[in-house]
């Protein structure tokens, strides 16, 4: 059956181009996650958007892959796959391509009362009911204290490697070398509730829950600022209901309760704006000097 349909029977070697029915093409660049593969996906999706090929309805970035929604009445899926292969071949030097993006200050109140209450409520669904999510994750990743673990999470920005699951959820993959990547399992059984704006981590990804909902990521804190605003009244939402954009660099910053309350008040009165700076990010520079590149980005955001 699989041979007749031209379907892979072995794990793919290299990029896997595959049809999602007649309206989608999924391009899996790698089975494994890495900063390298996501940056390749970022470069390819941007290049594809610039080409504005006929028949492409939408381009969706994912962590180690990307997906294209197509109109097969305009372009045959088999023809478009060939064009996508050519695009990949033409961007083999993707690490040296500069991405125009933005670095954003994302304040987080760690160990806040709301996620703490949620963590306690669903203790029976966790691998270690005797610890908080933060204590569990710190211990699992070899940190001596939760403070040191928080320091690691805020040490370097997270590249928004994918947006979705439900609208506007930003998945962040931290700009640190592989050996410093934080990784945690999801809850044993998912929670039925997570508070809006919770800051969380699952697998190798940080995430922010835009609205209340079910979830399985480890809960560490609470963001005072929204990432979704359907009414689009705040300055940062005038162009889109979603604040996160693919390729954003979210620089999480540890704040105290006083600043949290102050930001909440500014959100309520409608004057809140994210602190951010536009920048050119060249992956090759980061691969050569990761810590120096990150320091320069943060200096651009916060000033000398």
């Amino acid at each position: 059956m699989t041979a007749r349909l031209g379907v892979l029977t072995e794990p793919p070697r290299g990029t896997h181009y595959t049809f999602g029915g007649d309206e989608w093409i999924v391009v899996q660049l790698s089975e494994a996650m890495s900063l390298d593969v996501n940056l390749k996906a970022q470069v390819l999706t941007r290049a594809l958007a610039e080409k504005a090929l006929p028949g492409i309805v939408e381009i969706c970035l994912s962590n180690a892959s990307y997906m294209v929604r197509i109109d097969p009445d305009v372009v045959r899926p088999t023809v478009l796959v060939e064009q996508l292969r050519e695009l990949e071949a033409a961007h083999s030097d993707f690490r040296s391509i500069t991405l125009r993006t933005r670095i954003v200050d994302v304040p987080v109140l760690f160990e806040d009362e709301w996620t703490a209450a949620t963590v306690q409520r669903f203790r029976d669904r966790h691998q270690r009911p005797d610890l908080t999510d933060l204590e569990f994750a710190a211990e699992l990743n070899g940190y001596g204290s939760t403070d040191e673990f928080i320091d690691a999470m805020v040490s370097a920005p997270a590249l928004v490697s994918m947006i979705g699951f439900v609208p506007t959820v930003p998945w962040g993959y931290q700009l640190v070398p592989e050996e410093r990547q934080i990784e945690v399992p999801k809850y044993v059984r998912p929670r039925t509730f997570t508070p809006e704006r919770a800051f969380a981590w699952g697998g190798a990804f940080s995430a922010i829950y835009p609205v209340d909902g079910a979830g399985g990521y480890q809960l560490f804190g609470m963001c005072p600022a929204p990432i979704v605003q359907p009414e689009q009244s705040l300055h940062d939402f005038r162009e889109s209901f979603s604040f996160p954009r693919p390729g954003d660099l979210f620089n999480y910053r540890r704040i105290e309760r006083e600043e949290f309350d102050e930001i909440r008040a500014r959100v309520t009165e409608g004057s809140f704006r994210y602190r951010l700076a536009e920048l050119d990010f060249t992956p090759a520079e980061w691969f050569a000097r990761p810590d120096e590149t990150v320091a320069a980005m943060q200096e651009l955001l916060y000033g000398a």
Binding site: V26, S34, S62, N63, S65, P185, G203, A204
Partner: peptide, 14 residues
Amino acid sequence: RGAGSDPANVVDIG
């Protein structure tokens, strides 16, 4: 890497 331990899991994808 990044796929999680369950065989039903993959690196999160569209």
